[in-house]
Amino acid sequence: MGFKLLSKLLVYLTASIMAIASPLAFSVDSSGEYPTVSEIPVGEVRLYQIADGVWSHIATQSFDGAVYPSNGLIVRDGDELLLIDTAWGAKNTAALLAEIEKQIGLPVTRAVSTHFHDDRVGGVDVLRAAGVATYASPSTRRLAEVEGNEIPTHSLEGLSSSGDAVRFGPVELFYPGAAHSTDNLIVYVPSASVLYGGCAIYELSRTSAGNVADADLAEWPTSIERIQQHYPEAQFVIPGHGLPGGLDLLKHTTNVVKAHTNRSVVE
């Protein structure tokens, strides 16, 4: 069995187990497998329904001669939608809004960016022009300005110390501490036991640490421990890039980060 097929099978099995364990909360999309990078042309966006009122959005972007996937989250909030992270750029984010209108038909009224990198804030200006209120932590807003990236308009308070959590509509926002970046936030959907790890969490097929220019490698494993301790009931975990899975993604990420750190020390 090929690795790609095995990865998709694991996603399907995880979703099936969740649907059985929580039949009222989960209505997993039966329309197909989780979209992969090879299936999404740059400039297009796919939506994948995880649970009743919960979707991931998947886009792709060219970077350094390669094409990478990027995940975000959409959560229903009454007759409105909360968006977590842009679709990595203005063109993708405009396509995301169009796809949401086509498939869901509810307005996106608020959006949260989970850290300051372009795959999370690139497209904020498109959201703002569409009347979406954009939010991020003060740290993310400051770092985005320093980096020359787009800056969300509103500040999220109460997320300055490791372990801080605040309720934001249908989700809980959690600051686990520094990891992929010093400002990275985690998003949890309690009604569906869905954990969105953003770039602080890796997919299972990833074996290298990737972009760690703004990471705190020493603190990252401790931050992941905080996530595990705060959300032990999480059933569906979405990484910032690639295929979702279960809580095993947290341990896998820790292993990859520690291996990278150990290699760096040896070198």
Score class of each variant (00 low, 15 high):
residue 52 D to Q: 03
residue 44 E to A: 13
residue 11 V to A: 09
residue 82 L to Q: 12
residue 258 K to A: 08
residue 261 T to S: 06
residue 250 L to A: 08
residue 266 V to C: 07
residue 99 E to P: 02
residue 48 Y to N: 08
residue 72 G to M: 00
residue 113 S to Q: 09
residue 47 L to T: 14
residue 118 D to Q: 12
residue 126 V to S: 08
residue 30 S to M: 15
residue 45 V to A: 09
residue 56 S to L: 07
residue 266 V to G: 12
residue 104 I to N: 13
residue 58 I to T: 06
residue 267 E to D: 09
residue 144 A to C: 12
residue 78 G to V: 08
residue 113 S to C: 04
residue 113 S to L: 14
residue 93 T to E: 03
residue 242 G to W: 02
residue 190 P to A: 06
residue 78 G to A: 11
residue 83 L to K: 01
residue 35 P to V: 07
residue 257 V to C: 13
residue 77 D to R: 05
residue 123 G to Y: 01
residue 199 C to G: 05
residue 60 T to F: 03
residue 57 H to T: 02
residue 169 G to W: 06
residue 253 T to K: 01
residue 41 P to C: 14
residue 108 V to T: 04
residue 42 V to W: 13
residue 10 L to C: 14
residue 111 A to K: 02
residue 247 L to D: 03
residue 238 I to C: 12
residue 29 D to V: 08
residue 149 N to Y: 14
residue 214 D to N: 14
residue 220 W to N: 01
residue 51 A to R: 06
residue 148 G to L: 09
residue 87 A to N: 02
residue 176 P to T: 02
residue 83 L to M: 13
residue 236 F to V: 11
residue 260 H to T: 04
residue 217 L to I: 04
residue 83 L to I: 10
residue 42 V to R: 13
residue 21 A to Q: 11
residue 72 G to I: 00
residue 153 T to F: 04
residue 235 Q to G: 07
residue 89 G to F: 13
residue 134 T to I: 04
residue 197 G to Y: 00
residue 155 S to R: 09
residue 25 A to D: 09
residue 141 R to C: 13
residue 41 P to T: 08
residue 231 Y to V: 09
residue 223 S to P: 04
residue 171 V to T: 09
residue 111 A to T: 10
residue 244 P to R: 11
residue 236 F to L: 15
residue 22 S to R: 08
residue 259 A to Q: 12
residue 40 I to L: 08
residue 185 L to Y: 02
residue 7 S to Y: 15
residue 171 V to S: 12
residue 180 H to F: 00
residue 176 P to W: 00
residue 165 A to C: 12
residue 138 P to E: 15
residue 63 F to K: 12
residue 166 V to R: 04
residue 48 Y to G: 06
residue 188 Y to H: 10
residue 162 S to C: 07
residue 131 G to H: 03
residue 52 D to V: 06
residue 189 V to M: 03
residue 162 S to E: 07
residue 147 E to Q: 06
residue 71 N to K: 01
residue 109 T to L: 13
residue 38 S to C: 14
residue 41 P to R: 07
residue 66 A to G: 07
residue 167 R to G: 04
residue 234 A to Q: 05
residue 264 S to N: 10
residue 49 Q to C: 05
